[in-house]
Design a binder for these strands. Structure first.
Lengths: 252, 252
DNA sequence: TAGTGGTCTAGACCACTCG
DNA sequence: GAGTGGTCTAGACCACTAG
């Protein structure tokens, strides 16, 4: 019997290019490679890791996509400066972001309700108006201080219901939805703009009425690019949304 | 004499994977491939374009990075829904963004001055405090309506000076800086947050004092990842900043 | 089981940078 | 000219999806 394939999850070993990428990332994180320092050449890495050059290139490409290194034709590949390295956005950003910036994230659930989709939200989620949705309103806090309001709407599979308790206990709402409802976000689109806090928002966030808020609207998409969640987030002015923009290797 | 290599710019033919990507993009733009419709398989494309499968894969990867298609292991590659396809950010976003949304962009230069770097800006640009900088303040308009204020700071090479006229006439400030000063941005990092309009900002943007503004701070980086510009942008609440977030194909 | 995308190889040659 | 990354090939096998 060949036991090399474990039946349980996480059985498959990471592909070699990811192993190489992880090794390089570790070297960068540990400071063994300084900002703007050159990595070994691709041909050297080929020998060090005993894989083909193409595999090395895939590893480097992965790191480059994440903003950890950059390659210059004819010169070499270099460690990206920390300013760039720190930038990266993930799908359930808040908890991760906060931790990454050295803060302690927490949340307070305002309410968990089951409400039919309005026309506006039905349109966004490509459902018929009135389709039953679950709505979760939360205050997000950093080090105990209110930073943002999240208002999420999503359909649950028939028969699945969320209890307030589980939502409160969950480390991440997305994690919970993954386990309970097969929620599998792989991509999201966001629109950001500024607005003023109304009386309720001001009260919940501990800011004066009319204070400026950063509003982030998000539509989350499944693997098949079906919209599976709409979320409206409002942040106080001390919150920073970070982004990294790369040149559009223009297509025609 | 081999004339196949033109000495002038734009001589090199695009690599084949980009030609393939352009062809696919054209098919999508023209509507010959609908949202979520499957592309031909990689092996079919190999025959259609007479290139190796690896080259096809590079083309598809390029399109995927730009949010035009997505690939699912074992199923196929599909056209991304328009919602996602429309999202993409470029480095000199404003004019492009505005045009893409069907508006007519314009600008009004408030002033062009030469001022020594403050400590804060010197730090960001990695210069010594007091280093001579050029500062350009502009109002950005869409269809003649003020939408944002841009305040850009950058060092110019010794001897180079910008005239107000050229800045006013230029189609794009970045374009001008490229030609006149070898300015070559390839990447940028941005921080977004909300703030209230002060009296001057309110006057310039035609909004009440205290109105909420979307603030975007940007540091632009050269090919070698040296900071070459700091820009502070403030937008009225009707302005939308769009972003596309992809799952962090997690490293380690 | 057939078809898809994902990984990997071992070469080759080109394009660019810099001393 | 020596060294770097960029493009490209023609295969091979694996992992996943779906009828």
């Amino acid at each position: 019997m060949d036991m090399s394939k474990r039946p349980t999850e996480a059985s498959a070993p990471a592909p070699r290019y990811r192993q190489v990428a992880d090794a390089l990332r570790a070297a960068i994180d540990a400071g063994r490679l300084a900002d703007n320092e050159a990595l070994p050449s691709e041909r050297e890495l080929t020998e060090q890791h005993q894989v083909s050059r193409d595999t090395i290139r895939k590893a480097v490409r992965l790191l480059e996509d994440h903003g950890l290194v950059y390659s210059d034709h004819g010169r070499g590949t270099f460690v990206a400066p920390a300013l760039v390295r720190r930038m990266s956005r993930y799908i359930d950003g808040f908890s991760e972001d906060t931790r990454q910036r050295g803060g302690v994230p927490s949340q307070r659930i305002l309410n968990l309700e089951f409400s039919p989709a309005t026309m506006a939200i039905a349109q966004l989620l490509q459902l018929e108006s009135g389709h039953p949705l679950t709505r979760v309103r939360r205050v997000r806090l950093t080090n105990g201080v209110p930073i943002g309001l999240h208002d999420a709407y999503f359909p649950l599979p028939p028969g699945v219901k969320l209890a307030l308790q589980e939502v409160e206990r969950a480390r991440s709402l997305y994690q919970l939805l993954m386990e309970r409802a097969g929620f599998a976000p792989v991509e999201a689109v966001e629109n950001l703009f500024a607005a003023s806090a109304d009386a309720e928002e001001a009260r919940l966030l501990g800011v004066p009425e009319g204070a400026p808020l950063l509003v982030c609207e998000r539509i989350t998409l499944s693997e098949r690019r079906e919209p599976i969640e709409y979320c409206l987030m409002k942040y106080v002015s001390s919150y920073r949304y970070s982004a990294r923009i790369t040149q559009s290797s223009r297509l025609a």
